[in-house]
């Protein structure tokens, strides 16, 4: 029983991270109708900005997280202006390829010896130590991930559902032309959505960085997972991204535990294939 609880706890933390990254990707897809393949690159940059703020600027963990979130948000908005906006009327393949180019560019830039270099970086846990609850060991960092990711998701939900600016994002993803018709500036909404997606990815990266090593390739790995998640949940669906994230995390953690840790990723993608065979449109089909 304690072992199951232990895995449950680990899966919740992993799911929280996946959810934050996937939410940004699904929001951007909803608004722009183009998958942002550079999203993993934003996540990776978030981790390096956190590392740099801690290591080079010498600030604390929370300020580092905020710097990373703001920095990546700004960069994501810039990305919308420089790549997605100019290519808005081009065939969808063009912005897709451009985004992949950005992903590789960011990776190459970070790996360059004069920037951070190809080796992995380590971030010390801001809250070291563990909490023992009847045999279940909870690391403070994982607890922090769970609490912080739930808080951020709650905040995002509040923003989308309870504020007019948030409503413009949902409106634009449900009917772009209708949004323009009522006088919503879709350029501004596009930039804002990109900024939010960047901030979410950076927060996720800052939360998980003390547990995982920070490497230039971490963005590519995360890209695969979050694309799997939003395809699983239904492209553009917010609840779909959250459910998909936790589903993938639970499958990976429990599959890895009961079958083999080496196959954790494989099990996750097997689950994806099975779900899509049954529901090709994803779990949460969007209204048109």
């Amino acid at each position: 029983m304690t072992i199951v609880l232990q895995q449950l706890f680990n899966a919740l933390a992993l799911g929280g991270v996946y959810a934050l990254v996937a939410l940004g990707l699904t929001l951007v897809y909803g608004v722009m109708r183009v998958p942002n393949f550079a999203h993993g690159g934003l996540y990776m940059l978030g981790a390096y900005l956190t590392y740099a703020s801690l290591d080079r600027l010498g600030v604390g963990y929370v300020p580092a997280l905020i710097i990373a979130a703001l920095g990546v948000a700004l960069l994501a908005a810039l990305l919308e202006r420089l790549i997605f906006y100019p290519l808005r009327d081009a065939p969808h393949v063009h912005p897709m390829i451009a985004a992949i180019g950005v992903l590789f560019f960011l990776e190459a830039l970070i790996s360059h010896p004069s920037v951070f270099g190809p080796d992995f970086k380590q971030i010390a846990e801001p809250l070291p130590g563990i909490l023992n609850l009847g045999g279940v060991t909870l690391t403070w960092q994982r607890l922090l991930i769970i609490v912080a990711s739930l808080l951020v998701m709650w905040g995002l939900n509040f923003f989308l559902k309870r504020t007019l600016t948030g409503a413009t994002i949902e409106a634009m993803s449900q009917n772009r032309e209708g949004a323009r018709m009522v006088g919503i500036n879709t350029n501004r909404v596009g930039m804002l959505t990109f900024a939010i997606s960047g901030a979410l990815a950076a927060v996720a990266a800052a939360l998980v960085a003390p547990i995982n090593a920070v490497t230039p390739a971490m963005g590519e790995v995360m890209n695969l997972k979050v694309f799997a998640i939003i395809i699983l949940g239904g492209m553009g669906s917010v609840p779909g991204a959250i459910v998909g994230a936790f589903l993938l995390a639970f499958t990976e953690v429990f599959g890895g535990f009961y079958i083999s840790l080496d196959f954790a990723d494989l099990i996750g993608f097997t689950m994806l294939v099975i779900v899509l065979a049954i529901r090709p449109q994803g779990l949460f089909q969007r209204g048109t």
């Binding site: 409503a167 949902e170 409106a171 449900q174 009917n175 209708g178 949004a179 018709m181 969007r286 209204g287």
Partner: peptide
Amino acid sequence: GRLLFPDL
């Protein structure tokens, strides 16, 4: 075609 926001 109305162009409403169907899920809102």
